[in-house]
């Protein structure tokens, strides 16, 4: 029973955050422009349409104004906006001539394939490096690993991505210049050939050094903790003691990984842009470059919603892996 009410309370908290986010979006996307005397409907029309006849343009503006209620008072618009978001009515992309939801659904798989395998690799790698470093604390190998992680943390992701792309795709031609044309979902080979390089980069950059350092520092603290000393006093084998230390250090890593997983989709703009992977990131960048507001906001909304769901799942599993957490 305790767990259920905890789950409910957390769900309400996360939903409040979602609501805050929607208010935030509404304010910037619809309210702010109107305060400055701009009809947001104009934003929903691509530049191409400006070339069409004035009547045609005006008729679209009118229909959009009515559809989104821009002629109604702000609070009506607000309710309508929230309602639309909650029902996934994310609008119509006048540039590509299709509903935004469809574009997003088409892009999502590319991003999921791009992000999930590296998340697994990098978590394993972070745990291995971090625990090895902590077990050899103060020795040269610890300094090597720790400082490598710090350096890795500070190399801008787009620099690594650009250099790897130049090296492997342009110079060595072992990866495609752009993945769009290459990927066929029914052909594993095509997926591997397009993704192997972005996978490696994503493994190295996104959240990897943070988790490695987190693992190292947590494990260092745990190796110093009383219960590890006690196990040693009680004559447990060193191997067993290490395993216990690693297992305890994993708890913060798991949470961190969940948070990273939640925000991973927001971090792939650069990789998808460079490698031409037509996922959520490229969709966002293209939308921004084309000033395609419905697409931009729609994809952002989906990303954030996804983040909230993952964070909520993390809320739910956390008490299961760490008995110290009381269900607050």
């Amino acid at each position: 029973m305790g767990f259920l009410s905890y789950a409910m309370r957390r769900a309400v908290e996360r939903f409040i955050l979602l609501l805050g986010l929607m208010i935030f979006l509404w304010f910037f996307v619809e309210a702010l422009p109107q305060l400055f005397g701009i009809n947001p409907a104009e934003w929903y029309i691509p530049f191409g349409m400006l070339g069409k006849s004035q009547e045609f343009y005006q008729s679209i503006i009118r229909s959009l104004t009515i559809e989104f209620g821009f002629n109604k008072p702000l609070y009506v618009q607000f309710i309508k906006y929230i309602y639309n978001l909650l029902t996934f009515n994310l609008g119509y992309d006048w540039m590509q001539h299709e509903p935004v939801v469809e574009e997003i659904m088409r892009a999502l798989p590319y991003t999921v394939v791009l992000t999930v395998p590296p998340l697994i690799f990098q978590t394993i790698l972070a745990i291995l490096l971090g625990s090895y470093s902590a077990l050899n604390r103060g020795k040269w190998i610890d300094h090597l690993i720790s400082n490598y992680l710090i350096i890795q943390y500070n190399i801008p992701g787009f620099f690594i991505a650009a250099i790897f792309w130049v090296l492997f795709a342009v110079a060595l031609k072992t990866a495609p210049l752009s993945a769009v044309a290459v990927i066929k979902w029914n052909n594993i080979g095509s997926i591997l050939s397009a993704y192997w390089l972005p996978w490696i980069i994503q493994t190295l950059i996104f959240g990897f050094p943070n988790r490695g350092i987190l693992m190292r520092n947590t494990m260092e603290d745990i190796l110093d903790s009383d219960f590890i000393k006690y196990e040693r006093l009680a004559g447990l084998r060193e191997q067993l003691i290490r395993n216990h230390a690693i297992r305890n250090s994993l708890i913060p890593i798991i949470t961190r990984t969940a948070i990273d997983l939640a925000f991973i989709l927001g971090g792939i703009y650069i990789l998808e842009y460079i490698f031409g992977i037509p996922g959520m990131g490229l969709l966002g960048v293209t939308a921004a470059l084309q000033l395609n507001i419905p697409l931009l906001v729609g994809s952002f909304y989906v990303l954030t919603l996804y983040a909230l769901v993952i964070l909520y799942i993390n809320d739910l599993i956390y008490p299961l892996i760490d008995p110290r957490i009381k269900l607050r």
Binding site: S225, D226, F227, K229, Y230, E231, L233, A234, G235, H244, R247, N248, I251, I321, D322, P323, R324
Partner: peptide, 21 residues
């Protein structure tokens, strides 16, 4: 020797147990 012949109740023994087992 440890625990079989000599054992200890350490100082600060409140934290002697692994919190997640």
């Amino acid at each position: 020797i440890r625990w079989k012949r000599i054992s200890i109740i350490p100082q600060y023994s409140m934290n002697s147990f692994n919190p997640i087992k």
